[in-house]
Amino acid sequence: MIPPASPAFDIHSRFEREWAILTVTGDLDRSTAERLKNAARTAWKTEPAGLVLDLATVSFCDSVGLSGLVYVLRGCQARDMGLALAGVAPRVERILSLTRLLSAFDRFHSVEEALKAGEDGQRYESP
């Protein structure tokens, strides 16, 4: 049996309220993590106040994808800028939890919530 094709991977960037927003679509894995890193490097060049990764349509993340997220986190920390994850799917949240990285990221239900919290300097609090 042939497994179903994984969703096409894509990253769109936009800027709002001085924040760079990267909307990621598809699986974040060995074949796509470098594209996430490149998109973050491009966003950092614009010197935004922070970076929001919209992961609402990312349904899978492997260890290499996870290392891409950690790369972005460390890059934002080195530049003293905020990083927020928005719309994290349960499956992706689980891998962050299993690897004990969940608390390293500010997480929000939506990009809008992340932007508002960035203005207010708030961190996401798990229910």
Rank of each mutant, 00 (worst) to 15 (best):
D120F: 13
T25P: 02
A43S: 08
A89W: 07
R107M: 09
R91W: 08
V64T: 13
S126I: 10
A49T: 10
D54S: 01
A40E: 07
L69I: 07
R107F: 00
V88E: 08
A8P: 14
M1K: 04
F105M: 05
E16L: 07
R41M: 08
L83R: 05
G68S: 08
E113Y: 00
E119H: 11
A56I: 09
P127S: 04
G50T: 12
G26H: 08
I95S: 01
A86P: 05
T32G: 01
A33D: 10
S103V: 08
V92T: 03
T57L: 12
G121K: 13
L53V: 07
A49G: 06
P3T: 00
I11T: 00
P48E: 08
K45D: 13
R14P: 12
L36M: 10
R79N: 13
V64K: 11
T23C: 04
S13V: 09
V24A: 01
F105I: 11
L28H: 03
T57R: 11
Q77P: 05
V88H: 05
S97F: 10
F9H: 08
A78P: 09
D120I: 08
S103Q: 12
S13L: 14
G65C: 01
K37F: 07
G50D: 02
V52W: 05
C76F: 09
G68L: 15
D29R: 14
E16H: 12
L28N: 03
L98I: 10
F60N: 04
T25H: 13
D80Y: 12
L85F: 06
V24L: 14
A117E: 01
K116M: 11
L53A: 03
R107A: 00
V64W: 10
V58S: 01
D54V: 00
R74H: 09
E18N: 15
C61G: 01
A43T: 01
F105E: 03
E113P: 02
L66E: 06
K45V: 12
G87C: 12
I21H: 02
F105T: 06
W19R: 10
T23W: 07
T23A: 11
L101W: 06
S31W: 13
R100K: 06
R30V: 15
D54A: 05
R79M: 15
L66K: 03
G82H: 11
F9C: 12
V72R: 07
F105G: 06
N38F: 10
N38P: 01
G68V: 06
T46C: 10
A117M: 02
Q77I: 04
L22F: 11
D27L: 05
